[in-house]
Design a protein around this nucleic acid. Sequence first.
DNA 1: CTGTTAGCGCGTTCAA
DNA 2: TTGAACGCGCTAACAG
Lengths: 326, 326
Amino acid sequence: MPNIKQIAEAAGVSVTTVSRVLNDHPYVSEAKRKAVEEAIRKLNYSRNMNAVHLIKGTTRTIGVVLPRINLYYFARMMEGMAQEALLHNYQLMLCQTDYRPDEERKVLEMLRNKQIDGLVICSRSLSLDEVEAYAAYGPIALCEAVRDRPLSSVYIDHYAIFQKAITYLWEKGRRRIGFTAGRRRNSPSLRRRLQAYNDTLLALGGSPRQEWVLDGCYDIGDGAALVEHLLAMPERPDALLITGDQVAAGFILAARSRGLEVPGDFAVIGFDNQPISAVLGITTIDNRLSEIGARAFDSVRSQLAGQQPGPVSEELGFRFIKRGSV
Amino acid sequence: MPNIKQIAEAAGVSVTTVSRVLNDHPYVSEAKRKAVEEAIRKLNYSRNMNAVHLIKGTTRTIGVVLPRINLYYFARMMEGMAQEALLHNYQLMLCQTDYRPDEERKVLEMLRNKQIDGLVICSRSLSLDEVEAYAAYGPIALCEAVRDRPLSSVYIDHYAIFQKAITYLWEKGRRRIGFTAGRRRNSPSLRRRLQAYNDTLLALGGSPRQEWVLDGCYDIGDGAALVEHLLAMPERPDALLITGDQVAAGFILAARSRGLEVPGDFAVIGFDNQPISAVLGITTIDNRLSEIGARAFDSVRSQLAGQQPGPVSEELGFRFIKRGSV
DNA sequence: CTGTTAGCGCGTTCAA
DNA sequence: TTGAACGCGCTAACAG
């Protein structure tokens, strides 16, 4: 591969002129421009972007941290980011961490290393303190509510959602309400939800039950398995918030094939407004995953572009979609 | 951010020694090593990877081309790649192209630009000729059958799958067989499938019907909509190959709620062995998406590592999973 | 409008 | 075991 110097020689100009042509600068005579373009074509020249990145201190690449790309929740966020990236001519570095703290640290280091210009963290296991320590090296956006830190935050209010959903179930006469979650420990969103669960039920005069907080539910099979699990309980809930419509669908399908009725025996509220919820008539929460991804990406991008002086915090409203599972 | 020179000064050594410490080279006295490490800590130094990339001519980054990450088919492949990447300390650049040829070209250019060391193309709209032109700049793997070209190829035999599935339906007494697809035109896999569809049915003495080739089916909602579409046809199939279990599930659920029976009125064979196929008892093809991704990634990686002299071609076997929808 | 020159930050001969 | 010096390929003052 030839370099810029060889192009300059071949075209009979200086490297500066070549660089100017490469970067569409003004003040290049038409004749020299043509000569340079001709040399580029003839020698099959292509710029080495690593040199450009080095000198500019920028890569137009933004990192994305998430545990697993094959979960609807994250794939949808990623899709939103990717569309935005396409629009603004950015690249996306996908860092599937499987929630391993060391992998998350590696990505933060990439920010420090200048491999990426900014970072979107869809879900994390590191502490906010540890994340914040890297804010000095580039804009970081989290897809969760974060306050009073130099980090951008694009989120929906999980607390309010749970409050609303639980109250709705309560008004429909349900008194034995439980919920499911994905990751066991330390998830920021799980903490918020648990808090809302406890607060709301107590405020309504009900009783939160920790054995009705079911974790490890990721896909439709987990939802189906949940039915047996509940049936084996001495006391079981009569309503469930299920964080993920695939899981909710699995639960409903398995329950029905077991002769149970939804919403008769179990009222179900799903999450994400996935396509399957429309097909099965599942009442669900549209938590605007794609938009969260897009907005989180954009908060990073706009800071890089200097359009935003500092981190932004943006709460997106959710939509409660009533269908037939309650 | 300090650079290597400042560290050298602070530690009272030369930049060479600092570089040696940074890269774990031997022949550095314990005393100097400690001094360097101390200086690195004190000045909060971090290497600028872009300089390393420039000088090494390598980024340890592999690009991934796919149309949309929020399709099970691609998300699952990507997951396989990401796991492998994690294992081998590579980064993944996600390039969601939405099948736009220009975006695919941009990614190929990144290979030439040395932004990425290699490329995995999960699905393409460019011609193989155009892709092949970039093979000189780094290893490229496609997730489809490619012969006699300097490109790696990791795939399952779509032709054989269709042959097997159609024959199976035929043996079960079905004579009016159709199939669904995602993308309309120009998809290499669609072409293979169409060919298998025509060949197999003709060989069996049946008749392929072009109006029973249904495209634009991506998610569960499309599957549900398909039912109405078929019912509106003067002559409709009694069996369908549906490329994607979500789509198959939508079809089955909608058909049943319409009072139709599966497999009574329609026999259905799904694809991908997605979790939903187990829950609904859908007969399906396990096409090993995650492994395809992993193997494709690895073919690129091993070429970069010099473990493979040239491109490899690898066909993975599929599994036919019989459940209750036929 | 054009060219000379000095870096960007780092790895790596080569000689000591 | 160490360091001086060169070069990776490119951009951007600065001077003309």
